[in-house]
């Protein structure tokens, strides 16, 4: 038994038939083949699966795809625009904000939610905003620096975090 849903993912309209028990992350990865969104703990702890649903950071392992019916979703694949990296991606690149990279897509999406609400966060506000994202390399210092760098780049360039997708 399946339900018909529509999702707009990174600006692309999709009509899908999904079993109600399937999580949003499974549909993103398996049906849409967008494997940049990672599954880490699969128990709503680690945040690797974070995507934006209607602009808000959500753990896509803890949202049914049917709950997202009609929503606009941004994944890490939707952040770069015409080959231009998003300021958050530039920040992570420049400040060595990743080591193994597994947590990075989720970190960036959580940071996008933060910068959309608070374009000039303090380090403490950045740390609070990524409380739901675990880096298994424990590279938090550089992740915080990367998000701070992105905030500076966006302030200088006038690009908004929510603009992609």
């Amino acid at each position: 038994m399946t339900e018909a849903i529509t999702l707009v993912v990174n600006g692309v309209h999709h009509e899908l038939e999904v079993e109600p028990r399937r999580m949003l992350v499974q549909v993103i990865r398996e049906d849409l083949d967008l494997t940049g969104t990672h599954i880490g703990c699969d128990t709503s702890q680690c945040g690797a699966c974070t995507v934006l649903v209607d602009g808000q950071a959500v753990k896509s392992c803890t949202m049914l795809a049917v709950q997202a019916d009609g929503s606009s979703i941004t994944t890490i694949e939707g952040m770069a625009n015409d080959g231009q990296l998003h300021p958050l991606q530039v920040g992570f690149w420049e400040k060595h904000g990743l080591q193994c990279g597994f947590c990075t897509p989720g970190m960036i999406m959580a940071a996008a939610d933060l910068l959309a609400r608070n374009p000039d966060p303090t380090d403490q506000e950045i740390r609070h905003a990524i409380e739901g994202n675990v880096c298994r390399c424990t590279g938090y210092q550089n992740i915080v620096a990367a998000i701070r760098e992105a905030a500076s780049l966006m302030a200088a360039g006038g690009t908004s975090a929510g603009a992609a997708g």
């Binding site: 808000q56 950071a57 753990k59 803890t62 933060l114 409380e131 739901g132």
Partner: peptide, 9 residues
């Protein structure tokens, strides 16, 4: 309570 993602939902 929870974290940003949990508070959003």
């Amino acid at each position: 309570i929870g974290d940003v993602q949990v508070r959003n939902r």
